[in-house]
Amino acid sequence: MGIVKTKEMDQGKLLEVLNDQAQIRKLQETNCYAEHYGLTLTEEDTKLLVEERRQALHRTRRVEFGGGILPQIVMTFCDSQYITQDSYVDILTRLQEIFYTYKNEIRDEITDDELLAFMKEQYETICCGDLEYLESTCLELFAQAIRAGYDTYQLTGGEGIYENMDLVKRWERELYMEALRELFWG
């Protein structure tokens, strides 16, 4: 894509265009990895995601310098069992919004990697692919805990910690399998 430059285009707008082009390029590059999981982004998809990114940043009053979080979101979630090609763009859009929202909620006390690790783990296990549950329950509890001073996530990189704050009593896997065996095989 060439750069369209007119006399009327101010410097700010030019910077925006250049930044968007860089973002689109980086997103397109993720296809090399994501296509192994049957997921690809067309040029239209990436333009849409970049536009959604701008709006999400505006809504959450955040600024991104450099590459942005979208490529990382792709690399983290593309191997998910809950994402298909049909839902790929919509889910990426939502994940991006959720990510920015909770960076604010947690007051930037958590790194990008830690937050993404937590989100992925919960999305795949507790949430079973339900973004609403991820956003309104798991992340909400996580943010509350961090605001209250919880910092053990720093030791684990954001993984394996939700059980410490989960309000729902859940089956432990081994116990669950044992219960199943007793039920069906006496």
Binding site: R62, F65, G66, G67, D108, T111
Partner: peptide
């Protein structure tokens, strides 16, 4: 320059910051 400073501020661990921080 601000981007570079932001990267240092976040120790390269965050790709975004709030409007207020920026």
């Amino acid at each position: 320059l601000v981007g570079h400073l932001t990267a240092k501020y976040t120790s390269n661990e965050s790709t975004s910051v709030t409007y207020e921080t920026a």
